Amino acid sequence: MVSFEALRGYLLEEVLARLLQDNGYRLLVSVKQDPDALKRGRHGLLVRGRGSDHQADVLGELTLPTPFSLPLRVFVEAKYRGQKVGLRDARNAHGVVHDVNEQYATAHAGSRRVPVRRHLYRYALFSTSGFSLPAQQYALAQQIFLVDLSGPAFSNLTEATDRAARRLVQLLSETDVPFPRGQVRTALRISLGTWTDDGSSEDGGPPTESSSSVLHQSSPVRRVGPDESIRRNPAHAEKRALPPERLMSVADTLASEIVGSLLLGFPTSPFILVLRPDNLPAFAAYVIDHPIEVLVDIRFATARNASGDWVIVPADGSERFALRFSLPTLLASWLLEDETAVAMRARDVKAGLLSSIFVFHDARLVRLTFRPRRHTDPAQSTSAW
């Protein structure tokens, strides 16, 4: 029987796959998408490395052009634990990404065979309970991206995942079925809309009429029994399965609660931001009115009122949208450790690390440029928004 902790992490990874897809990444879920770099393993998709092959539960490829760089791919791993993620996990992430980046294909240059790297891989590690100080120091040095989901801005995401995991545990208990990973993954990815858009199955075979109808059926209850899950996930030939209608109910509920609730922010810094809009349609409307560049102000909670959240608002003072996020703990702790230096350090962080943040929204790249708002009361410049 799968543990509740492991199940929560598994569900969170599927949710983050949707987040990745919404932010300009094409999900890689089939060997057919890249037979040279990908292979099928016992428990799902593997990425070939120089020394070993590595599990890729969530793997995305950036669809935007990356000038003077190889095409970018990112591993996503989620940890939903009661304790902070430690140095061991950060080291494992570095080992994986270093090994796959050392894998070379062979290209012909005239009469010679030349080893060629085809992609640049990165690794993003998400945690609902934060990271230990050694893990943060190591990850920052090795360019492993750590995303802390423990702040209040992400409570809706973690609570929805927790509820779905509890419903699945109850369903597994009532039906007395070993965890059918393939069937559950199929159900989640149908509800979340994260199957590859080329229509190929997990084994690289051509799409069938039945698979197409399952993927595009609008009914909230779709049959995802053992036959369908095995066709999509031949590595998981489960002999027993959960009741399809009840499983799809869990998957659909989770999807309805989290889809469209978060954005990824990419600052010119060695970390990424997960942004929670207070009102996503309001942000979308503001972006339409400001198509080239969005000038913003960034505020944060002081040591006197530390919620852990920062907020991005329009620089024109209109307050038409708000995007909330948390900084990496190592940076936030340094920022707030000396209350007398908070304003100065915050100014340096915003003018340097957060001066330009890119967000992928509605199929285009939006640039958020820091432009501080002018306040009549100097004390307001460091207050929580």
Rank of each mutant, 00 (worst) to 15 (best):
residue 6 A to N: 14
residue 9 G to S: 14
residue 11 L to K: 05
residue 11 L to Q: 07
residue 12 L to F: 15
residue 13 E to T: 14
residue 16 L to M: 15
residue 18 R to C: 06
residue 20 L to G: 02
residue 20 L to Q: 10
residue 22 D to L: 14
residue 26 R to T: 15
residue 30 S to D: 08
residue 33 Q to R: 03
residue 35 P to A: 11
residue 37 A to G: 00
residue 37 A to T: 01
residue 39 K to I: 02
residue 39 K to R: 09
residue 42 R to T: 06
residue 53 D to V: 02
residue 56 A to P: 00
residue 57 D to Q: 10
residue 60 G to M: 00
residue 62 L to F: 13
residue 65 P to N: 08
residue 65 P to L: 09
residue 74 V to P: 03
residue 74 V to Q: 09
residue 79 K to A: 02
residue 86 G to K: 06
residue 87 L to A: 02
residue 88 R to A: 11
residue 90 A to G: 07
residue 93 A to C: 14
residue 104 Y to C: 03
residue 107 A to Y: 00
residue 109 A to K: 14
residue 111 S to L: 10
residue 118 R to D: 10
residue 126 F to T: 06
residue 133 L to K: 10
residue 133 L to N: 06
residue 135 A to P: 01
residue 139 A to E: 02
residue 140 L to F: 06
residue 152 P to N: 05
residue 155 S to C: 01
residue 157 L to H: 06
residue 165 A to Q: 08
residue 166 R to H: 15
residue 177 V to I: 13
residue 179 F to A: 05
residue 186 T to C: 11
residue 187 A to S: 10
residue 188 L to I: 13
residue 188 L to V: 13
residue 190 I to C: 01
residue 191 S to L: 01
residue 192 L to N: 10
residue 193 G to I: 08
residue 195 W to H: 10
residue 199 G to H: 13
residue 199 G to I: 13
residue 200 S to N: 08
residue 201 S to K: 10
residue 205 G to N: 12
residue 207 P to T: 13
residue 207 P to E: 11
residue 208 T to C: 04
residue 212 S to P: 04
residue 213 S to W: 07
residue 216 H to V: 04
residue 219 S to C: 03
residue 220 P to M: 03
residue 220 P to G: 03
residue 222 R to S: 01
residue 223 R to K: 14
residue 224 V to Q: 00
residue 226 P to A: 08
residue 226 P to F: 02
residue 236 H to A: 15
residue 241 A to Y: 08
residue 244 P to Y: 03
residue 252 D to C: 10
residue 253 T to P: 05
residue 262 L to P: 01
residue 262 L to T: 06
residue 265 G to V: 11
residue 266 F to L: 13
residue 274 V to N: 01
residue 274 V to C: 08
residue 277 P to Q: 13
residue 280 L to K: 14
residue 280 L to P: 12
residue 282 A to F: 04
residue 282 A to M: 05
residue 284 A to V: 15
residue 292 I to L: 12
residue 299 R to G: 15
residue 305 N to A: 11
residue 306 A to Y: 13
residue 312 I to K: 05
residue 317 G to R: 04
residue 320 R to L: 12
residue 321 F to R: 02
residue 327 L to Y: 10
residue 332 A to Q: 11
residue 338 D to L: 12
residue 341 A to V: 00
residue 342 V to I: 11
residue 342 V to G: 01
residue 342 V to L: 15
residue 344 M to Q: 14
residue 346 A to M: 09
residue 346 A to E: 02
residue 351 A to H: 12
residue 352 G to D: 08
residue 352 G to F: 00
residue 354 L to C: 07
residue 366 V to W: 08
residue 368 L to C: 12
residue 370 F to C: 09
residue 371 R to Q: 15
residue 379 A to C: 05
residue 380 Q to F: 11
residue 381 S to N: 09
residue 382 T to N: 14
residue 383 S to Y: 10
residue 384 A to Q: 14
